[in-house]
Write a protein that binds this DNA or RNA. Structure first.
Length: 269
DNA sequence: AGTCACCTGATT
DNA sequence: AATCAGGTGACT
């Protein structure tokens, strides 16, 4: 599920749903999620607080609590975070939940249990997120920034794009889609790309993320039905052996850093 | 810089 | 039964 656009949509939905309701209790059903903190640390310290502010940084969701601490979530591959109207009807894949004073519940739903939930002081939080790179939808993300960061990198551009310490929030799907839109082969070495190509890539990243954010927001705001027409239109991801939407050649798949990369051997050079 | 382990569920 | 998965950190 979640790369930057989906995580942003989850944050916005949460902002809408949550309001200033008191948290009555916390239940960490899978201790691994809170590792290395013991679940009791969260359970003991969130009760009788409420959420003051909701922020996103990269793929991380940060809930500032009224007691000065921050509830930190990372959704991993399959995580989702939302308010359920009745805590008694939480789904089977609920891995942590927070009972709210109005009878509702904040649910952390994560089939694969690869996500994280932690409770941090300001200093602890800083240590966790300080390594993150630029926000790609902020003013700080410029073609010059991308050029500077790519310059000394000897990894493939696909692996570079997924490095959270360089750009925070791109994952496997949108990295592949950005490279397709920019016409760049995923195995090109980041540091060897010419400025003009990096500039095109910069534009492609911003466009892909804006499109995907739009889609994610409309999709996530409707509980239940997902509207096909509004979902992000992938052009290469998951389309191995299907025809390229532009040149009609067959989309290929390779392995990079243990992940599948989809690309068009005709359009991406 | 590449591989693996962490988990579970959906799909082939 | 085997393979695949939108992530990340810890290992060679």
């Amino acid at each position: 599920m979640p790369e930057l656009p989906e995580v942003e949509a989850v944050s916005r939905r949460l902002h809408k749903q949550l309001g200033k309701v008191e948290i009555v209790s916390a239940h960490i059903l899978r201790p691994r999620l809170a590792h290395p903190q013991p679940p009791s640390h969260i359970e003991a310290n969130v009760r009788q607080t409420s959420v003051e502010k909701i922020r996103r940084r990269g793929k991380h969701i940060l809930l500032n609590l009224t007691n000065g601490m921050t509830l930190h979530f990372h959704l991993g591959m399959t995580g989702d975070l939302y308010v359920c109207d009745d805590y008694r009807f939480r789904p089977h894949t609920t891995r942590a939940w927070f009972e709210l004073a109005d009878g509702r519940a904040l649910i952390f739903d994560d089939a694969r249990v690869l996500g994280h939930v932690n409770l941090y002081t300001a200093a602890e939080l800083e240590a966790v997120i300080q390594h993150l790179g630029v926000e790609p939808l902020s003013k700080d993300f410029t073609p010059e920034f991308l050029r500077e960061r790519a310059r000394r990198s000897s990894v493939s551009i696909k692996v570079f794009l997924m490095d959270q310490t360089k750009i925070a929030g791109l994952g496997n799907i949108y990295a592949a889609e950005s490279l397709f839109r920019a016409g760049i082969h995923p195995e090109r070495i980041a540091g060897k790309l010419r400025p003009a190509r990096l500039e095109r890539l910069h534009g492609a990243i911003v466009n892909v993320l804006e499109d995907a954010l739009q889609s994610a927001c409309t999709a996530y705001m409707r509980p239940g039905r997902f509207r096909e027409a509004e979902s992000f239109a992938v052009q290469v991801y998951g389309r191995e052996r299907q025809r390229c939407v532009t040149c009609n050649r067959k989309v290929g798949r390779i392995q990079q850093g243990g992940r599948s990369t989809y690309f068009c051997p005709g359009c991406q050079t």
